[in-house]
Design a protein around this nucleic acid. Structure first.
Lengths: 186, 186
DNA sequence: ACAAGAAACTTTATCTCTGAAGTCTTCAGG
DNA sequence: CCTGAAGACTTCAGAGATAAAGTTTCTTGT
Protein backbone atom coordinates (compact mmCIF):
# COMPACT_ATOMS: atom_id res chain seq x y z
CA UNK A 1 0.00 0.00 0.00
CA UNK A 2 2.52 2.56 -1.14
CA UNK A 3 0.18 5.30 -2.35
CA UNK A 4 2.47 6.85 -4.89
CA UNK A 5 1.39 10.19 -6.24
CA UNK A 6 -2.08 11.52 -5.40
CA UNK A 7 -2.88 11.83 -1.73
CA UNK A 8 -1.40 9.92 1.19
CA UNK A 9 -3.49 8.14 3.73
CA UNK A 10 -6.25 9.97 5.57
CA UNK A 11 -7.30 13.28 3.98
CA UNK A 12 -10.83 13.13 5.40
CA UNK A 13 -11.96 16.45 6.82
CA UNK A 14 -9.80 19.28 8.04
CA UNK A 15 -9.86 20.44 11.59
CA UNK A 16 -11.58 23.77 12.09
CA UNK A 17 -8.43 25.68 12.93
CA UNK A 18 -6.56 24.17 10.02
CA UNK A 19 -9.29 25.27 7.71
CA UNK A 20 -9.20 28.81 9.03
CA UNK A 21 -5.46 28.81 8.57
CA UNK A 22 -5.94 27.70 4.98
CA UNK A 23 -8.32 30.57 4.35
CA UNK A 24 -5.83 33.05 5.74
CA UNK A 25 -3.11 31.60 3.56
CA UNK A 26 -5.23 31.81 0.41
CA UNK A 27 -7.05 35.04 1.18
CA UNK A 28 -5.10 37.16 3.66
CA UNK A 29 -7.72 39.90 3.93
CA UNK A 30 -10.10 37.57 5.73
CA UNK A 31 -10.85 38.18 9.41
CA UNK A 32 -10.03 34.88 11.11
CA UNK A 33 -12.39 35.51 13.98
CA UNK A 34 -15.30 36.14 11.68
CA UNK A 35 -14.44 33.19 9.54
CA UNK A 36 -14.22 30.96 12.54
CA UNK A 37 -17.69 31.85 13.71
CA UNK A 38 -19.16 31.42 10.28
CA UNK A 39 -17.44 28.14 9.54
CA UNK A 40 -18.30 26.69 12.91
CA UNK A 41 -21.92 27.67 12.42
CA UNK A 42 -22.05 25.91 9.09
CA UNK A 43 -20.40 22.76 10.29
CA UNK A 44 -22.46 22.59 13.45
CA UNK A 45 -25.59 22.82 11.46
CA UNK A 46 -24.55 20.11 9.11
CA UNK A 47 -23.72 17.76 11.93
CA UNK A 48 -26.99 18.47 13.65
CA UNK A 49 -28.90 17.64 10.52
CA UNK A 50 -27.02 14.39 10.21
CA UNK A 51 -28.02 13.56 13.76
CA UNK A 52 -31.65 14.45 13.17
CA UNK A 53 -31.60 12.46 9.96
CA UNK A 54 -30.49 9.32 11.74
CA UNK A 55 -33.19 9.63 14.35
CA UNK A 56 -35.80 10.16 11.68
CA UNK A 57 -34.74 7.05 9.85
CA UNK A 58 -35.31 5.13 13.04
CA UNK A 59 -38.82 6.51 13.22
CA UNK A 60 -39.50 5.76 9.59
CA UNK A 61 -39.97 9.26 8.23
CA UNK A 62 -37.82 11.53 6.11
CA UNK A 63 -36.42 14.92 6.87
CA UNK A 64 -38.83 16.44 4.38
CA UNK A 65 -41.78 14.92 6.12
CA UNK A 66 -40.52 16.11 9.46
CA UNK A 67 -40.45 19.67 8.21
CA UNK A 68 -44.07 19.46 7.23
CA UNK A 69 -45.07 17.98 10.57
CA UNK A 70 -43.23 20.75 12.39
CA UNK A 71 -44.92 23.46 10.39
CA UNK A 72 -48.35 22.04 11.06
CA UNK A 73 -47.75 21.54 14.75
CA UNK A 74 -46.42 25.03 15.19
CA UNK A 75 -49.60 26.66 13.93
CA UNK A 76 -51.50 24.83 16.68
CA UNK A 77 -54.90 23.19 16.63
CA UNK A 78 -56.56 22.23 14.46
CA UNK A 79 -53.18 21.81 12.76
CA UNK A 80 -54.27 23.03 9.36
CA UNK A 81 -52.49 24.85 6.53
CA UNK A 82 -52.79 25.17 2.78
CA UNK A 83 -50.18 23.74 0.43
CA UNK A 84 -49.11 27.17 -0.74
CA UNK A 85 -48.69 28.38 2.80
CA UNK A 86 -46.71 25.30 3.73
CA UNK A 87 -44.52 25.74 0.69
CA UNK A 88 -43.77 29.31 1.69
CA UNK A 89 -42.87 28.33 5.23
CA UNK A 90 -40.62 25.49 4.17
CA UNK A 91 -38.97 27.40 1.36
CA UNK A 92 -40.20 25.12 -1.41
CA UNK A 93 -42.09 25.58 -4.62
CA UNK A 94 -45.80 24.76 -4.52
CA UNK A 95 -45.08 21.96 -6.96
CA UNK A 96 -42.75 20.27 -4.51
CA UNK A 97 -45.36 20.60 -1.78
CA UNK A 98 -47.93 18.87 -3.92
CA UNK A 99 -45.71 15.82 -4.20
CA UNK A 100 -44.70 15.85 -0.58
CA UNK A 101 -48.29 15.96 0.51
CA UNK A 102 -49.10 13.11 -1.87
CA UNK A 103 -46.61 10.94 -0.05
CA UNK A 104 -47.65 12.00 3.40
CA UNK A 105 -51.31 11.40 2.68
CA UNK A 106 -50.42 7.94 1.46
CA UNK A 107 -48.60 7.31 4.73
CA UNK A 108 -51.46 8.62 6.80
CA UNK A 109 -49.55 11.50 8.36
CA UNK A 110 -51.86 14.19 6.99
CA UNK A 111 -55.15 14.52 5.16
CA UNK A 112 -55.87 16.73 2.17
CA UNK A 113 -59.31 18.13 1.46
CA UNK A 114 -60.80 20.93 -0.57
CA UNK A 115 -61.91 23.85 1.53
CA UNK A 116 -65.66 23.81 1.02
CA UNK A 117 -65.94 27.47 2.00
CA UNK A 118 -63.58 28.48 -0.79
CA UNK A 119 -63.06 25.70 -3.22
CA UNK A 120 -59.90 27.17 -4.69
CA UNK A 121 -58.18 26.33 -1.46
CA UNK A 122 -56.99 23.02 -0.16
CA UNK A 123 -56.57 22.18 3.50
CA UNK A 124 -53.80 19.94 4.74
CA UNK A 125 -54.46 18.69 8.25
CA UNK A 126 -52.33 16.67 10.61
CA UNK A 127 -53.75 13.27 11.54
CA UNK A 128 -53.47 11.85 15.02
CA UNK A 129 -50.84 9.54 13.68
CA UNK A 130 -48.93 12.50 12.26
CA UNK A 131 -49.06 14.31 15.57
CA UNK A 132 -47.87 11.21 17.37
CA UNK A 133 -44.93 10.92 14.97
CA UNK A 134 -44.04 14.53 15.65
CA UNK A 135 -44.07 13.92 19.39
CA UNK A 136 -41.71 10.99 18.95
CA UNK A 137 -39.29 13.02 16.85
CA UNK A 138 -39.49 15.81 19.36
CA UNK A 139 -38.52 13.52 22.22
CA UNK A 140 -35.47 12.27 20.34
CA UNK A 141 -34.50 15.71 19.11
CA UNK A 142 -34.80 17.24 22.55
CA UNK A 143 -32.61 14.53 24.02
CA UNK A 144 -29.96 15.14 21.38
CA UNK A 145 -30.10 18.87 21.86
CA UNK A 146 -29.82 18.64 25.61
CA UNK A 147 -26.77 16.48 25.20
CA UNK A 148 -25.27 18.84 22.67
CA UNK A 149 -25.55 21.79 25.00
CA UNK A 150 -24.67 19.97 28.18
CA UNK A 151 -21.17 21.42 28.34
CA UNK A 152 -22.50 24.95 28.50
CA UNK A 153 -23.25 26.68 31.76
CA UNK A 154 -26.68 28.27 32.11
CA UNK A 155 -25.04 31.66 31.68
CA UNK A 156 -23.37 30.57 28.48
CA UNK A 157 -26.58 29.15 27.12
CA UNK A 158 -28.40 32.36 27.75
CA UNK A 159 -25.61 34.39 26.20
CA UNK A 160 -25.49 32.16 23.17
CA UNK A 161 -29.22 32.39 22.70
CA UNK A 162 -29.15 36.14 23.00
CA UNK A 163 -26.31 36.61 20.54
CA UNK A 164 -27.78 34.25 17.97
CA UNK A 165 -31.12 35.98 18.28
CA UNK A 166 -29.47 39.29 17.61
CA UNK A 167 -27.70 37.97 14.53
CA UNK A 168 -30.90 36.41 13.31
CA UNK A 169 -32.78 39.66 13.67
CA UNK A 170 -30.16 41.37 11.58
CA UNK A 171 -30.35 38.92 8.69
CA UNK A 172 -34.09 38.64 8.79
CA UNK A 173 -34.49 42.36 8.61
CA UNK A 174 -32.07 42.72 5.72
CA UNK A 175 -33.78 39.81 3.96
CA UNK A 176 -37.45 40.65 4.44
CA UNK A 177 -38.65 37.35 2.93
CA UNK A 178 -39.31 39.69 0.07
CA UNK A 179 -38.61 37.49 -2.91
CA UNK A 180 -40.99 34.93 -1.51
CA UNK A 181 -39.49 31.51 -0.99
CA UNK A 182 -36.44 31.02 1.12
CA UNK A 183 -34.20 29.22 -1.26
CA UNK A 184 -31.74 26.52 -0.50
CA UNK A 185 -31.26 24.10 2.29
CA UNK A 186 -32.71 24.06 5.72
CA UNK B 1 -60.73 39.99 -0.75
CA UNK B 2 -62.46 38.74 2.34
CA UNK B 3 -60.44 35.59 3.01
CA UNK B 4 -63.21 33.51 4.46
CA UNK B 5 -62.11 30.28 6.07
CA UNK B 6 -58.51 29.09 5.78
CA UNK B 7 -55.92 31.56 6.93
CA UNK B 8 -56.18 35.34 7.16
CA UNK B 9 -53.71 37.62 5.54
CA UNK B 10 -50.01 37.28 6.27
CA UNK B 11 -49.07 33.93 7.79
CA UNK B 12 -45.52 34.03 6.40
CA UNK B 13 -42.98 32.99 8.98
CA UNK B 14 -43.32 33.01 12.72
CA UNK B 15 -41.16 35.14 14.90
CA UNK B 16 -38.55 33.18 16.81
CA UNK B 17 -40.12 33.71 20.21
CA UNK B 18 -43.54 32.83 18.92
CA UNK B 19 -42.19 29.62 17.56
CA UNK B 20 -40.57 28.72 20.86
CA UNK B 21 -43.83 29.46 22.60
CA UNK B 22 -45.58 27.13 20.18
CA UNK B 23 -43.17 24.34 20.99
CA UNK B 24 -43.77 24.80 24.69
CA UNK B 25 -47.48 24.71 24.14
CA UNK B 26 -47.30 21.51 22.10
CA UNK B 27 -44.52 19.77 23.97
CA UNK B 28 -44.23 21.14 27.51
CA UNK B 29 -41.18 19.04 28.43
CA UNK B 30 -39.00 21.02 26.06
CA UNK B 31 -36.35 23.34 27.49
CA UNK B 32 -37.09 26.74 25.95
CA UNK B 33 -33.53 27.93 26.26
CA UNK B 34 -32.16 24.93 24.43
CA UNK B 35 -34.81 25.13 21.80
CA UNK B 36 -34.11 28.78 21.26
CA UNK B 37 -30.45 28.18 20.61
CA UNK B 38 -31.12 25.29 18.27
CA UNK B 39 -33.86 27.03 16.34
CA UNK B 40 -31.86 30.22 15.98
CA UNK B 41 -28.89 28.23 14.73
CA UNK B 42 -30.99 26.56 12.09
CA UNK B 43 -32.62 29.73 10.90
CA UNK B 44 -29.41 31.68 10.86
CA UNK B 45 -27.83 29.08 8.71
CA UNK B 46 -30.66 29.05 6.28
CA UNK B 47 -30.56 32.79 5.89
CA UNK B 48 -26.84 32.79 5.41
CA UNK B 49 -27.13 30.24 2.66
CA UNK B 50 -29.77 32.33 0.98
CA UNK B 51 -27.40 35.27 1.08
CA UNK B 52 -24.51 33.26 -0.29
CA UNK B 53 -26.75 31.85 -2.96
CA UNK B 54 -27.69 35.29 -4.19
CA UNK B 55 -24.10 36.38 -4.42
CA UNK B 56 -23.18 33.23 -6.28
CA UNK B 57 -25.90 33.80 -8.82
CA UNK B 58 -24.39 37.22 -9.45
CA UNK B 59 -21.06 35.58 -10.11
CA UNK B 60 -22.58 32.95 -12.34
CA UNK B 61 -21.85 29.82 -10.36
CA UNK B 62 -23.97 27.51 -8.25
CA UNK B 63 -23.70 26.64 -4.61
CA UNK B 64 -22.58 23.15 -5.56
CA UNK B 65 -19.75 24.51 -7.63
CA UNK B 66 -18.73 26.83 -4.86
CA UNK B 67 -18.35 23.91 -2.50
CA UNK B 68 -15.98 22.22 -4.88
CA UNK B 69 -13.93 25.37 -5.33
CA UNK B 70 -13.66 25.80 -1.57
CA UNK B 71 -12.51 22.23 -1.06
CA UNK B 72 -9.82 22.57 -3.70
CA UNK B 73 -8.56 25.91 -2.44
CA UNK B 74 -8.40 24.70 1.14
CA UNK B 75 -5.97 21.91 0.29
CA UNK B 76 -3.60 24.53 -1.11
CA UNK B 77 -1.38 24.43 -4.15
CA UNK B 78 -1.40 22.81 -6.54
CA UNK B 79 -5.12 22.65 -5.75
CA UNK B 80 -5.59 19.00 -6.58
CA UNK B 81 -7.93 16.32 -5.28
CA UNK B 82 -9.45 13.11 -6.57
CA UNK B 83 -13.19 12.77 -7.18
CA UNK B 84 -13.60 10.26 -4.39
CA UNK B 85 -11.81 12.48 -1.95
CA UNK B 86 -13.87 15.47 -2.97
CA UNK B 87 -17.03 13.45 -2.60
CA UNK B 88 -16.07 12.48 0.92
CA UNK B 89 -15.30 16.05 1.91
CA UNK B 90 -18.51 17.43 0.50
CA UNK B 91 -20.70 14.64 1.80
CA UNK B 92 -21.79 13.41 -1.61
CA UNK B 93 -21.75 10.10 -3.39
CA UNK B 94 -18.95 9.59 -5.91
CA UNK B 95 -21.60 9.47 -8.59
CA UNK B 96 -22.74 12.98 -7.82
CA UNK B 97 -19.14 14.19 -7.92
CA UNK B 98 -18.68 12.75 -11.37
CA UNK B 99 -21.53 14.85 -12.67
CA UNK B 100 -20.50 17.96 -10.82
CA UNK B 101 -17.02 17.72 -12.21
CA UNK B 102 -18.45 17.22 -15.69
CA UNK B 103 -20.20 20.54 -15.42
CA UNK B 104 -17.28 22.35 -13.90
CA UNK B 105 -14.87 21.08 -16.52
CA UNK B 106 -17.25 22.29 -19.20
CA UNK B 107 -17.24 25.72 -17.56
CA UNK B 108 -13.48 25.79 -17.27
CA UNK B 109 -13.38 25.96 -13.48
CA UNK B 110 -11.38 22.74 -13.08
CA UNK B 111 -9.54 20.18 -15.18
CA UNK B 112 -9.85 16.41 -14.90
CA UNK B 113 -6.97 14.12 -15.85
CA UNK B 114 -5.93 10.56 -15.20
CA UNK B 115 -3.11 10.29 -12.71
CA UNK B 116 -0.30 8.81 -14.85
CA UNK B 117 1.49 7.51 -11.77
CA UNK B 118 -1.53 5.43 -10.81
CA UNK B 119 -3.96 5.21 -13.62
CA UNK B 120 -6.84 4.13 -11.39
CA UNK B 121 -6.88 7.60 -9.98
CA UNK B 122 -8.20 10.80 -11.47
CA UNK B 123 -6.93 14.25 -10.57
CA UNK B 124 -9.22 17.24 -10.43
CA UNK B 125 -7.29 20.49 -10.47
CA UNK B 126 -8.42 24.06 -10.09
CA UNK B 127 -7.82 26.26 -13.12
CA UNK B 128 -6.72 29.87 -12.84
CA UNK B 129 -10.22 30.84 -13.77
CA UNK B 130 -11.59 28.64 -11.01
CA UNK B 131 -9.27 30.19 -8.47
CA UNK B 132 -10.25 33.65 -9.60
CA UNK B 133 -13.93 32.76 -9.17
CA UNK B 134 -13.23 31.57 -5.68
CA UNK B 135 -11.48 34.82 -4.82
CA UNK B 136 -14.48 36.77 -6.04
CA UNK B 137 -16.91 34.71 -3.98
CA UNK B 138 -14.64 35.08 -1.00
CA UNK B 139 -14.66 38.86 -1.25
CA UNK B 140 -18.44 38.97 -1.35
CA UNK B 141 -18.84 36.38 1.38
CA UNK B 142 -16.39 38.14 3.66
CA UNK B 143 -18.21 41.42 3.20
CA UNK B 144 -21.52 39.81 4.07
CA UNK B 145 -20.06 38.07 7.09
CA UNK B 146 -18.46 41.23 8.40
CA UNK B 147 -21.77 42.98 8.13
CA UNK B 148 -23.58 40.13 9.82
CA UNK B 149 -21.29 40.23 12.83
CA UNK B 150 -20.93 43.99 13.00
CA UNK B 151 -23.23 44.34 15.99
CA UNK B 152 -21.04 42.11 18.11
CA UNK B 153 -18.28 43.48 20.25
CA UNK B 154 -14.85 41.86 19.87
CA UNK B 155 -15.40 40.15 23.18
CA UNK B 156 -18.70 38.75 22.04
CA UNK B 157 -17.22 37.52 18.81
CA UNK B 158 -14.48 35.71 20.62
CA UNK B 159 -16.93 34.20 23.07
CA UNK B 160 -19.24 33.11 20.27
CA UNK B 161 -16.38 31.52 18.38
CA UNK B 162 -15.20 29.71 21.45
CA UNK B 163 -18.60 28.35 22.37
CA UNK B 164 -19.41 27.21 18.87
CA UNK B 165 -16.05 25.51 18.61
CA UNK B 166 -16.76 23.66 21.79
CA UNK B 167 -20.14 22.50 20.57
CA UNK B 168 -18.64 21.46 17.28
CA UNK B 169 -16.00 19.40 18.97
CA UNK B 170 -18.67 17.60 20.89
CA UNK B 171 -20.71 16.64 17.84
CA UNK B 172 -17.71 15.78 15.74
CA UNK B 173 -16.37 13.45 18.41
CA UNK B 174 -19.69 11.71 18.84
CA UNK B 175 -20.06 11.44 15.05
CA UNK B 176 -16.57 10.30 14.03
CA UNK B 177 -17.28 10.58 10.30
CA UNK B 178 -17.52 6.85 10.79
CA UNK B 179 -20.24 5.92 8.36
CA UNK B 180 -18.33 7.72 5.63
CA UNK B 181 -20.23 10.46 3.89
CA UNK B 182 -21.82 13.28 5.82
CA UNK B 183 -25.35 12.99 4.69
CA UNK B 184 -27.77 15.79 4.10
CA UNK B 185 -27.48 19.43 3.34
CA UNK B 186 -24.63 21.79 3.65
C1' DA C 1 -75.65 38.51 -15.05
C1' DC C 2 -71.22 37.97 -17.62
C1' DA C 3 -66.69 38.19 -19.05
C1' DA C 4 -61.94 39.45 -17.83
C1' DG C 5 -58.63 38.69 -14.33
C1' DA C 6 -56.56 36.90 -10.23
C1' DA C 7 -55.63 32.94 -7.03
C1' DA C 8 -54.35 28.40 -5.63
C1' DC C 9 -53.08 24.04 -6.93
C1' DT C 10 -51.50 20.56 -10.15
C1' DT C 11 -49.05 18.82 -14.18
C1' DT C 12 -45.03 18.39 -17.25
C1' DA C 13 -40.23 18.68 -18.53
C1' DT C 14 -35.69 18.98 -16.86
C1' DC C 15 -31.99 18.79 -13.42
C1' DT C 16 -29.30 16.88 -9.53
C1' DC C 17 -28.51 13.45 -6.14
C1' DT C 18 -28.55 8.60 -4.40
C1' DG C 19 -27.77 3.53 -4.69
C1' DA C 20 -26.49 -0.24 -7.28
C1' DA C 21 -24.23 -2.26 -11.03
C1' DG C 22 -20.40 -1.99 -14.33
C1' DT C 23 -15.58 -0.99 -16.14
C1' DC C 24 -10.88 -0.40 -15.92
C1' DT C 25 -6.45 -0.58 -13.33
C1' DT C 26 -3.34 -2.31 -9.91
C1' DC C 27 -1.71 -5.72 -6.50
C1' DA C 28 -0.81 -10.37 -4.55
C1' DG C 29 -0.30 -15.32 -5.19
C1' DG C 30 0.56 -19.58 -7.53
C1' DC D 1 2.88 -14.80 -16.57
C1' DC D 2 -1.80 -15.31 -15.30
C1' DT D 3 -5.71 -15.14 -12.33
C1' DG D 4 -8.51 -13.40 -8.50
C1' DA D 5 -9.46 -9.64 -5.46
C1' DA D 6 -9.67 -4.95 -4.32
C1' DG D 7 -9.94 -0.08 -5.44
C1' DA D 8 -11.56 4.20 -7.98
C1' DC D 9 -14.38 6.10 -10.98
C1' DT D 10 -18.42 6.08 -14.19
C1' DT D 11 -22.97 4.68 -15.88
C1' DC D 12 -27.88 3.74 -15.20
C1' DA D 13 -32.43 3.84 -13.09
C1' DG D 14 -35.32 6.08 -9.69
C1' DA D 15 -36.69 9.77 -6.16
C1' DG D 16 -37.39 14.54 -5.31
C1' DA D 17 -36.88 19.54 -6.52
C1' DT D 18 -37.55 23.63 -9.65
C1' DA D 19 -39.71 26.41 -13.38
C1' DA D 20 -43.18 27.13 -16.40
C1' DA D 21 -47.51 26.05 -18.30
C1' DG D 22 -52.22 24.45 -17.37
C1' DT D 23 -56.86 23.95 -14.57
C1' DT D 24 -60.27 25.09 -11.74
C1' DT D 25 -62.56 28.40 -8.85
C1' DC D 26 -63.52 32.84 -7.04
C1' DT D 27 -63.95 38.06 -7.69
C1' DT D 28 -64.91 42.34 -9.76
C1' DG D 29 -66.39 45.94 -13.21
C1' DT D 30 -70.16 47.09 -16.30
Amino acid sequence: MTAAAGSPGAPQELDLDEQIAAYQREFPEVDPQVEKVVTALGRLNRRMNVAYGRQLVDLGISNSEWEVLKALVVVGRPYRLGPGDLAKRLGLTPAAMTHRIDRMVAEGLVTRDRDEANRVRVIVELTDEGREKWLQTMRLAAAFEDELLQDLTPVERAALGEILTRLLRRVESSQPDAGGRLEDLD
